[in-house]
Design a protein around this nucleic acid. Structure first.
Lengths: 171, 171
DNA sequence: TGATATTTGATATACTTTATAACAATTATC
DNA sequence: GATAATTGTTATAAAGTATATCAAATATCA
């Protein structure tokens, strides 16, 4: 229904050539044009690639990047509640509930009512959570980040990280 | 229901101090820890920031980054069909249909049946589409990319772009 | 040539991510 | 002590992303 009437887009029907403009360009690669200079475009494509690789590397542990980041934060910051962890990661509190449900049902972390503010749930890693996190760290370092180092070199990798952090913080 | 029993996580109830571990850490900023060294994490945060800014800068034209990228490709690559454009942008063909419906309903582009392969829809920018794209390019260059140049400097921006492209292509 | 396979755009559908409003329980404020 | 704010939660919706399937059209090849 959104399809317009059939129109010949070829500049002119040339009987001598068998192909119109749409066929003539078929073997030519599509030009990205100014898209190749757009930082946001490259950023998005690179991010997708890196998340794909992260998922592959850590597949044996069935952890997404977001789940891994939660476990990391819980390990480094004991005694924090849901709101604090979610805010730090840019996760909205309502969405963090289901995410924690998943981690808790796998016995990777636990919620405990704070005795000082009974509204809060203090988040802690379980023993299994610590084990899984340790394994995940090793996989990420040995497979994921190592592959990045191989591609960019340590110095470039550090430079890249610095610029990305600057954008994330100051932009 | 997923909430575990109330447990006091404070190491020991010390009567002399009014605050347990969960309260004592409340004024301390959360430590990102190794999260700060994870490229994927910084990449994601930076990408979100950049897309937010893109949306702000181009808000008068009501274009998302994805829509902008489609218009750019159509302008540079006349005579291509939906599959070619969608594949280039990493958009799945079924999802590209609704996206094109939106652009076509705003008279920014049009589908035309190819006379050489009547299965295909040749995509073309409308006159309005060209005008809107030109305005969008100016907004992006003058506001969005200019701000990035200000933050990073032209040389660093080019370096960043190069590394992101390398990741997107070779990783 | 004609039967079979492939391609194209489209529909239906589902899952994930992200976003907002509202609620009960609890705590803070004045 | 009344009112406001916070916490975790539920419900819900809008995007984004993914797969299977279909009819029409084209390609393949025996």
């Amino acid at each position: 229904m959104t399809v317009s009437k059939a129109v010949d887009v070829t500049r002119a029907p040339r009987p001598a050539r068998k192909e119109g403009i749409d066929n003539a360009t078929q073997d030519t690669p599509i030009q990205l044009g100014e898209l190749a200079g757009l930082l946001g475009y490259s950023l998005k494509r690179a991010q997708l690639k890196i998340f794909e690789d992260f998922l592959r590397c850590v597949a044996p542990l069935q952890l997404t990047p977001a789940q891994f980041s939660v476990l990391l934060l819980l390990d480094r910051n004991p005694g924090r509640n849901q709101t604090e962890i979610a805010n730090t990661l840019g996760i909205l509190r309502p969405n963090f509930v289901a995410m924690l449900d998943g981690l808790e049902s796998r016995d990777l972390c636990a919620r405990m009512r704070s005795t000082y503010d009974r509204r809060s749930h203090i988040l802690v890693l379980t023993e299994k959570g610590r084990v899984v996190l340790a394994r995940a760290k090793k996989l990420v370092a040995a497979k994921h980040e190592a592959r990045l180092n191989e591609l960019l070199g340590p110095a470039n990798r550090a430079t890249l990280l610095g610029m990305l952090d600057k954008i994330a913080r100051e932009f």
